[in-house]
Amino acid sequence: MALTFRHLFRSFITTQYPEKRLSTSRRIRGQQFVWRSDLCTGCATCAKSCPHGIIQITTSTNGDNRYVVDNIEFDTGRCMFCGLCVEACPYNALYMGRSYEQARYSRKLLWADMETLMDPANQVSAYGHPELEWRIPRQSLLVYGQISQEMVDEEND
């Protein structure tokens, strides 16, 4: 019982979510995808690698004998966010997003169509793309706060 009494005077460890947000991991696999049409060649490797087959991609050839992506859609309602599609993409055209607030009232709204995927407001996560990591704020650890730069340097030198 003494232990619980001691804990009475320790500070809380929970955070009040909507007011206070912790920054997520740099590699977070959020609940959205970011797709770059300029880099995509329409090879459909992502669709092949998806365990659930939720990626729909339709392509056609244009005059230069290159593929043009007519439509690409993700059924994020059935997605399990394993990230295999992002890792599979050979041209770095597909990224995970960082948003984790994608709750919707209907399953239909969870279909991410081309516009949603290219929305400039999407924030890109560094999952599968370590070269992006420096651009993203460092993860705040809930219990430890942040690991300071000195500790990191000390460790890696």
């Binding site: 590699r27 966010f81 990230g83 650890l141 809930l142």
Partner: peptide, 24 residues
Amino acid sequence: YMYREREKILDLFEMVCGQRLTYN
């Protein structure tokens, strides 16, 4: 109390692979 420690571990996992429960 045990959730508190688990939280730290999950934070570490999130740092490594971006997910807190299903790591892949």
